[in-house]
Design a protein around this nucleic acid. Structure first.
Lengths: 211, 211
DNA sequence: TCGTAAATTGAACAATCGTTCATTATGTGA
DNA sequence: TCACATAATGAACGATTGTTCAATTTACGA
């Protein structure tokens, strides 16, 4: 459903090497698996479900992935660094207070959307049982915090009475936590105003730490 | 493992009606199921796992629960209102700034503990796919917010420049969100200081809303 | 002590699971 | 067009799933 753009890209005249074709098949399967995982969770989604969703045969899955665990691992690692990329393209276009606020607001919208929220929740649940995946989640969060802190540092410049880098790190941590918190509340239909909360969090950079 | 106290209670001379016995059996099974769900998640935990963990036969599960979904539903509804109970006994003992802070800090510790965190994550993941469960989660959060708001209202009394009840609701919402956020960060081993964050959140009651 | 009702068991069921592999289809350089 | 390598298929495997139920044990009032 959501891979229309990808299919259009496949229709282009771009010549493909075997490697590209192999990659795109693996990509198709992975995207189908993601839809299945969103629908029923990691362990309830069967290899047959994934094969059917991808429109390929059951056996073909094992040509591109060792086993089901490999597909799950690929799904969990799929959006690593995506936040940094989204932020990067924003910074490249020049950062203003309004675009920063709009970006964070859009980030909340992205994460509160049903399929994204379901996948994230599934990953957190898996992390709660599997330390290796917990470590991966932690690394993703830390990387996102670093990216955001860098953007904030460039945007605000030096600020009064504190180490600017430390302040940027604290604010990045606070903002990202807030984004996730707001996404959850929005998804659950709880009474909350993301824009207002984000606006105040940008004005009040460090409500939780004393430096 | 953790049900020793419960087993000891069973050994007491306390006479049991059939209803009590039936309930305690159901309770044993439910607690065993909770341990299984923590270990492997809702759908990966099998009825055989649960029966073995509870030390009963497979068929007996169906005497106390209609099917697996009923056990999952019982597990999801198990800790409904527990927050309110914990808070209630605190309020009954008289609320001070220190006990309130200590309570919230303990709440973070409770929710960042591995098995509690795993169960909560599993429930959220289920809520992401099942609207009925999402509604139940929302109700739990709203109930907890109401309970906390009432306690805050009694503790602070009327405050300046705003409707006290609305302010208490906002702060309760903010504090509970912060508790969950901190629990997640603690569990993942991210750099965070729960006490400091909670302390500042108590001093600054309404960082995200304009009234 | 007996008899009946409730509690408990585990073998058995069809369905589905992840995985393998012999077989077939497809594409491509000679 | 032929030959060969690679892509793709789906039937089949043993294991495990949720669920049922006839059989057995346990508990307890008469």
């Amino acid at each position: 459903m959501n891979d229309c753009s990808l299919n259009n890209a496949k229709g282009m005249k771009l010549r493909k090497t075997n490697q590209n074709l192999k990659d795109s098949r693996a990509q198709d399967i992975l995207e189908a698996a993601l839809r299945c995982f969103v629908r029923t969770g990691f362990s309830a989604a069967s290899m047959r479900d994934i094969a059917t969703e991808a429109g390929v045969s059951l056996g073909l899955l094992y040509r591109y992935f060792d086993d089901k665990a490999a597909i799950v691992a690929a799904a969990i690692g799929a959006d690593s660094g995506e936040f940094g990329q989204r932020l990067g393209s924003l910074v490249a276009d020049g950062l203003t207070g309004e675009t920063l606020l709009a970006f964070l607001e859009q980030e909340v919208a992205l994460r509160s959307e049903a399929s994204m929220f379901a996948l994230t929740a599934e990953i957190v649940a898996e992390a709660a049982r599997n330390p290796a995946i917990a470590a991966l989640v932690r690394q993703n969060i830390e990387a996102a915090e670093m990216d955001l802190a860098e953007a904030l540092l460039a945007f605000y410049g030096p600020r009064e009475k504190t180490d600017p880098r430390q302040l940027a790190m604290n604010q990045a941590s606070h903002l990202l936590g807030l984004v996730d918190l707001l996404a959850m509340r929005v998804f659950l239909g709880l009474n909350v105003n993301p824009r207002e909360a984000l606006e105040l969090a940008l004005e009040n950079p460090n409500p939780y730490r004393i430096n």
